[in-house]
């Protein structure tokens, strides 16, 4: 299906390599090299502010307090960079369009959709993922509360909800139910266990979330 779409004349921008062609040539190993070399040449030809990419460029991130050095293309999102290159697969890729919240991370104290953030854009910022919430083997209050009240069904949205609830409680330690609803507005649970998620957040607020 993708190769027939690629042949439509009104899509000149589509990368003109079908999966089949790619598999045929991938064994030779020349394709990737050629793309990277072209990118480097273009970057050098430009005057003015520094142009990097489109090939791999060094990107240094600070994730859960640790430095992570990557070589990735500028188009790689924070979510994909951490999931695919840094083995931080806790936050999930679901809609990939900033509509569901499963990828929610905390950047400089505020929640963001990691799927809608370029990794190259958040260098020098403090990034926290769901992996960074527990300290020395013990869950944080939100994680514990989600377990205690069983605030998950399939669990795929859970990491995003836990990060969003943690960020909310760090900023607003004693939220009203309206503040919880608004604070978790950017996350969706398709199984529909919102009532339990509310309960867990209230329980976690009662215990208090301490920033690790």
């Amino acid at each position: 299906m993708s190769s027939s779409k690629d042949n439509l004349p009104d899509k000149p921008d589509r990368v003109s390599v079908s999966r089949r062609d790619f598999l045929k040539t991938a064994g030779v190993g020349s394709l990737a090299t050629a793309v990277t070399a072209a990118g480097a040449a273009e970057a050098e030809a430009q005057a003015g502010p520094r142009v990097v990419g489109p090939g791999d460029v060094p990107v240094a991130l600070t994730v859960n307090g640790k430095r992570v050095d990557l070589r990735i293309e500028p188009r790689v999102t924070l979510l994909d960079a951490l999931r695919n290159r840094a083995d931080l697969t806790g936050n999930k890729r679901v809609c990939d369009r900033g509509s569901c919240g499963a990828c929610t991370m905390i950047v400089d104290g505020r929640t963001v959709y990691a799927c809608s953030t370029l990794a190259i854009d958040v260098q020098g910022k403090q990034i926290r993922t769901v992996e960074g919430l527990a300290s020395s083997g013990s869950l944080n209050a939100v994680q514990q509360a989600f377990c205690d009240v069983d605030a998950l069904m399939c669990g795929f949205c859970t990491p995003g909800f836990i990060v969003a609830a943690t960020a909310l409680l760090e900023r607003t330690p004693n939220p009203t139910s309206e503040q919880i609803r608004r604070g978790l507005d950017g996350n969706i649970c398709r199984c529909g266990t919102f009532v339990r998620i509310m309960e867990a957040t209230v329980a976690a607020a009662a215990k208090g979330v301490r920033r690790v």
Partner: peptide
């Protein structure tokens, strides 16, 4: 997403 070159403009 198609690959692109990136500029971090500061002014």
């Amino acid at each position: 997403m198609k690959a692109f070159a990136y500029v971090n403009a500061t002014s």
